[in-house]
Design a protein around this nucleic acid. Structure first.
Lengths: 196, 196
DNA sequence: TTGATTTCCTAACATACATCAATGCTTCAC
DNA sequence: GTGAAGCATTGATGTATGTTAGGAAATCAA
């Protein structure tokens, strides 16, 4: 069966054909309905997830305000996890849930180590993911401490053009660290300057 | 010679004694004066740095505003680099400079791979650094999009108590994403509520 | 279909933070 | 030591963003 994850291992991670069956034998697949919750605060996150189809989000809820703060979206061919919990064993401070009906591949930290042992390509790609994650987070911090909401919004739709139409605007606002009302004003301003 | 980095490899990374001489033979040491610049935007960052003594900072300068935005400080026993440039080979978007006279250990990406080959402990610790970095960045993003300046300031002095007295307040403000004037007022407010 | 919910927008008002400017204070270069 | 530069503080004022409230359109559930 040519699953999305299989294709990804073969074509993107460049895992050697002889290693593919073993690696595939260690993972499992799961289906989530829309709005289903995959991880809640307080739980120890035991798994990492690969999205074959659908859309997940990682977010926190302010203890005092009750407001959601979105840390990450994960769409097709993305990995997502709560690394602070997965790698360090701490209780999760975040939620992961499904914004659409989603098909996932599930594996754990031990799988990553096992697969890395037999496949150097897998090991390299795993490091690539970590490095890239750091690069993106750093970029986001840089814009959060230095750029206006408008500029951050423009960065967002440029970086995730196919994601933008799939999620409500208040979630984009939550990702950017502003209110939906503010985002609405930002968009209004952009529409006006553009039309001139 | 029992350098700080040697001790760190031995006691913290737990590199086996038989591997230490080889690993040490691949790194070099450098001294920086206060305010000396180690990396500038546009350069390809070829190295990672370990601070034996002193204090470095990683920061960007807004192209339009000319303002500095501090992404990271690195004090004794910390690693620092511009990973986006080091790992991906992109031109750096950041500066690294010395806030105090500093002694560093310098090595490159190839060193990390070589050392990882011969020492599993080194490899593991390298992954630990990456995972921990992600955890910290994620935490910072979460507070940037969800918390007030006051709360972020309190987090900062709690997380870096020994760093706080070594740097001017405007740099803390720059790290927090606010102006020095705002930080001054936040501190004033805290001093008043505390004294009541 | 129909009512209920969600989303998005708008407006009036409130607030946190930025900006500009002035003032001591400390630090540093010479 | 002395002047210059950098730093922290404060006040007056401006602006971006938050808050609250309401309404229209789209979406969802029964």
């Amino acid at each position: 069966m040519e699953s999305q994850y299989y294709k990804y291992l073969k074509d993107k991670i460049l895992v050697k054909p002889e290693h593919l069956p073993f690696i595939m034998s260690l993972v499992s697949r799961k289906h989530l309905k829309k709005n289903e919750i995959l991880l809640s605060p307080g739980q120890i996150c035991k798994n990492m997830f690969f999205v074959e189809e659908g859309l997940l989000r990682l977010y926190s809820v302010g203890e005092d305000t009750g407001k959601e703060h979105i840390l990450q979206f994960a769409t097709e061919n993305w990995f997502i996890s709560e690394r602070g919990s997965l790698y360090f064993g701490n209780p999760s401070e975040f939620f992961i849930d499904a914004l659409e009906a989603t098909t996932l591949i599930i594996f754990d930290q031990k799988f990553i180590e096992q697969a890395s042992e037999i496949s150097p390509e897998f090991r390299n790609y795993n490091e690539y993911i970590l490095q890239n994650h750091i690069r993106l987070l750093q970029k986001r911090i840089n814009s959060l401490i230095g750029a206006t909401a408008e500029s951050r919004y423009l960065d967002f739709i440029k970086l995730y053009p196919n994601l933008t139409p799939r999620i409500p605007q208040w979630m984009i606002a939550s990702y950017l660290g502003i209110t939906p009302e503010s985002l609405s004003r930002v968009r209004k301003g952009l529409a006006q300057t553009k039309s001139k």
